[in-house]
């Protein structure tokens, strides 16, 4: 069988890409095995870090699921003048460097910040360097993701179904609850799962607002910089496995749809 030059070129690129992308994973597995990382994961400090990560990511995802879905609905069905600009604005955190996002959150919600200062003065409420700050940072980063997922989910619902619902006497709320949400559910759920994965892996923005608190990515950074390969390996592998399962689930939902 004759192999064309084009086919050979494509195969070569696939092989090289495979080699490049698998090398970090291979290195991680190698380091994990050598450092006896599993044993180092079972201590109170790591338990607190994992719990903090899970709790903050779940809270941020729950908030983003509601707000992102509402934003997605708004920009899909309530097209107003300037809507494109506003949608672009809400999408900014998607492409913004996370460290910049974290810094801006500090400026806004820090003790001397635009919103933080009056909150502190009025209620002695401090957001920065608390669990709430972690939730806020993750929420800021993942809401645009959820908004885009919701937007594309709603766009996939045939326009005639929405019109049919209205013509049958259903108001906007009934149409949203009885038609749009059920028909968009798989894409919305995939969006929620992806947002959760992004939240739990968030590093840049959370790093700036975390203070002494630590999430899994922050802990990996701290341990890797401190030369404690065992914990860094173990937590990295945990995140890799989690991410893999999330992607698997999203793909499964996509196929089911």
């Amino acid at each position: 069988m004759k192999i064309s030059a084009f086919s050979a070129f494509m195969t070569l690129i696939v092989l090289l890409a495979g080699l490049f992308f698998s090398s970090p994973f291979a290195a991680l597995l190698n380091s994990f095995a050598a450092a006896d990382s599993l044993g180092q994961l079972f201590n109170r400090q790591i338990f607190i870090v994992v719990t903090t990560s899970l709790v903050t990511a779940l809270l941020a995802t729950g908030l983003a699921a509601v707000v992102g879905t509402v934003l997605g609905y708004h920009f899909t069905f309530r097209k107003k003048a300037g809507g494109r600009w506003l949608k672009t604005f809400f999408s900014l955190p998607l492409v913004l460097p996370p460290s910049a996002a974290g810094y801006m959150l500090l400026l806004a919600f820090g003790r001397y910040g635009l919103i933080g200062a009056p909150l502190y003065q009025a209620f002695s409420l401090q957001i920065m360097f608390t669990t709430a700050a972690l939730v806020l940072a993750q929420f800021f980063v993942i809401t645009p993701l959820m908004m885009q997922a919701a937007s594309s989910a709603f766009q996939q619902v045939p326009e005639s179904l929405v019109k049919a619902s209205h013509s049958l006497g259903a108001n906007e709320y009934t149409t949203f609850v009885k038609v749009l949400l059920p028909l968009s559910r798989p894409v919305l759920v995939a969006g929620v799962i992806t947002a959760f994965a992004r939240a739990i892996g968030e590093f840049g923005a959370t790093m700036l607002v975390a203070g002494r608190l630590k999430t899994i990515p922050i802990m990996i950074y701290v341990k890797a910089m401190g030369g404690d390969a065992g914990v860094a390996d173990g937590l990295s592998l945990l995140l890799v496995l989690l991410s893999f399962m999330v992607l698997l689930l999203v793909n499964f939902l996509g196929e089911k749809r």
Partner: peptide, 27 residues
């Protein structure tokens, strides 16, 4: 006003019965 669409626009997640009752329930 009743509207029959070109693609019928039946709600795929509902049975024929639920589709028929959709308007009455909405009202």
């Amino acid at each position: 006003i009743g509207f029959v669409f070109q693609d019928y626009a039946l709600f795929p997640n509902l049975t024929a019965e639920a589709n028929i009752l959709f308007g009455l329930q909405a009202r």
